[in-house]
């Protein structure tokens, strides 16, 4: 059993796999409770995210969507519960995970270039003190090309549009070459072209057997973009395949008002 698990981890790192195959759990969250100043913002969350899904986390403002991602990544300390990435604590699995924070969480006036920001994605595999070299630069340039931003590599980041900044963040995650991608509202404040470009890249990642978890706001696009969904409002409401659970019942439970979305088949 142990041996097989290890093999799975290795496979997920290198070889393309069919989505959600063999029921391997990429991310497991058990009894997770997170509080700000003793007020719980996430309450007793149990969640299993299968390998190879493209999953949306949806819920109203203040539902704890970003908090859930931050707690999984160890950025916030939960007051109870545990998280594992391929059956091991996050600290041991950092290199399997890439994170795209909300665009608004950083100061875009910081004196640096697009290429330099993307290079930051390589810092994790470098570890402390070691500096990025030619190899890391090459990987960063490739990632920039993938998101269509190669021409802007030397542009100061404040001189980029919102959509371009989001692409830079995506490139920074791509350069980490991870198995699991966490993205906090990657579509916020981006133009339509960028939104399409981003979702195409996410779908490509999924095809390559990666697991992609996205905090998402636009309910209309959930069935079109994602194959898995988690409804969250402080507690977990539901989680599963979009075609099975993305319905008015769950939306109403999550958003508290009568929700009607017409799901186009």
């Amino acid at each position: 059993m142990e041996k097989e698990l290890k093999k799975n981890i290795r496979d997920s790192n290198s070889i393309y796999k069919t989505p959600a195959s063999a029921g391997v759990i990429a991310v497991q969250v058990d009894d997770l409770t997170v509080a700000y100043n003793y007020k719980p913002v996430l309450w007793d969350i149990d969640l299993e995210i299968p390998e190879g899904v493209l999953m949306a986390i949806v819920g109203p403002n203040g539902a704890g969507k970003s908090t859930l991602i931050k707690a999984i990544l160890g950025i916030l300390k939960p007051i109870a519960g545990s998280v594992s990435i391929y059956k091991k604590p996050y600290e041991e699995q950092r290199k399997l995970v890439a994170y795209v924070p909300q665009k608004g969480s950083v100061d875009w006036d910081f004196p640096t270039t697009a290429l330099d920001v993307v290079m930051m994605g390589t810092y994790g595999s470098l570890g402390w003190i070691k500096r990025p070299k030619q190899k890391e630069k090459k990987a960063a340039l490739e990632a920039l090309e993938k998101v269509g931003m190669l021409a802007f590599k030397n542009r100061q980041i404040s001189q980029l549009s919102g959509g371009q900044q989001q692409r830079i963040f995506l490139a920074r995650a791509l350069v980490q070459n991870a198995s699991i991608y966490f993205m906090d509202e990657p579509f916020q404040g981006v133009d339509a072209t960028t939104e399409i470009a981003i979702i195409n890249i996410l779908k490509e990642l999924r095809k390559a057997g990666k697991t992609v978890i996205v905090v998402h706001h636009d309910l209309q696009t959930v069935p079109e973009y994602f194959d898995w969904v988690t409804f969250l409002n402080v507690k977990k409401i539901a989680t599963g395949p979009v075609k099975d659970i993305f319905n008015d019942d769950n939306l109403t439970k999550t958003y508290g008002i009568n929700y009607k979305v017409s799901i186009q088949e």
Binding site: M120, L126, R172
Partner: peptide
């Protein structure tokens, strides 16, 4: 000189720095 990269990433994006283990 030793921690330039760590200082830069934690100043620019503390969330990313934390998730990378810095």
């Amino acid at each position: 000189i030793a921690f330039f990269k760590e200082l830069k990433v934690s100043t620019f994006d503390a969330g990313l720095a934390a998730s990378l283990g810095f």
